[in-house]
């Protein structure tokens, strides 16, 4: 069965996007990347003296595409410049657009996010915005030309899962571009739920990077994404208040003597 996943014009084999942040070492990242089956990996941009080389090469060696982010930006202006630095550094016009409002919640600043998205689309970027679980904002982001929307399940790094599944389902209904559940994944069942709610893909970072066994968790979340996608396509049964016997009453023997 064909079940294509496209972002922009790019066909992706995996519905799991891996975040590269937080791993204990480059080797452990590479092992988790292989186990995840992901073909897109997010990266950040930081001053050279604070970083070590090798990540870009490791992602390339795995045959994966980099998705530079704008993590740490609080204004549209900073996010646009960071996106442009990412395009120059990584030779891709894709950007995971993050414009946050404060450093305690890391929640998106909707006003700055929409302004940055509009500018980057005009500048030729394929924009994947990290956004609130807000269907109206998602629709606005789609209307300015974003290639996908990436609503949060819960705050970045919290591992709280999807706090408002109803809102994620509404985001799915609100837009026709791909919906990628971003932020909040804590374990495999969170990823499965995202897919069952109709998300097209899941982005996981901390849940894998900080697991005791990153490679096994990468595999588990990849399998959960796949299972959740199948369940979505299969069509779940409606929820009912009362029981519905799976065995017929017809032909039940009369065994009472009174």
């Amino acid at each position: 069965m064909s079940d294509e996943f496209l972002i922009g014009e790019r066909r992706l084999a995996s519905r799991l996007i891996l975040g590269s942040g937080g791993f204990r070492s480059l080797d452990r990242f590479s092992a988790a990347l292989a186990a995840s089956g992901s073909d897109v990996v997010t990266v950040a941009l930081r001053r050279v003296e604070t970083t070590e080389g090798g990540l870009y090469e490791a992602i390339g060696a795995a045959g994966c595409q980099t998705l530079p982010n704008t993590a740490g930006c609080y204004t549209a202006r900073d996010a646009v410049l960071t996106a442009q630095l990412g395009r120059e550094a990584l030779e891709t016009d894709w950007v995971k657009l993050e414009v946050i409002g404060d450093d305690r919640t890391l929640l998106p600043d909707a006003v700055e996010l929409l302004a940055a998205a509009e500018q980057l689309v005009a500048d030729g970027f394929v924009v994947l915005p990290y956004t609130n679980d807000d269907p109206i904002l998602a629709r606005r982001l789609e209307s300015v030309g974003c290639a996908a929307v990436m609503p949060l399940g819960s705050p970045i790094g919290s591992g709280l899962g999807i706090r408002n599944p109803h809102a994620i389902a509404l985001v799915r209904e609100a837009v026709s571009v791909p919906v990628v559940l971003d932020a909040g994944i804590g374990t495999a069942s969170d990823a499965a739920l995202a897919m069952e709610l109709g998300c097209d893909a899941v982005l996981a970072a901390t849940a894998i990077a900080k697991a005791d066994d990153e490679t096994m968790m990468a595999r588990a979340i990849a399998e959960a994404v796949s299972a959740g996608r199948k369940a979505r396509l299969a069509g779940r049964i409606p929820k009912r208040l009362y029981a519905d016997p799976s065995t017929t009453d017809v032909g039940t023997p009369e065994l009472s003597s009174t």
């Binding site: 950040a44 001053r47 050279v48 070590e52 870009y56 980099t66 932020a183």
Partner: peptide, 10 residues
Amino acid sequence: VEVVRATAGG
């Protein structure tokens, strides 16, 4: 001047 490198990040 800002000189940056791709590094690990979510």
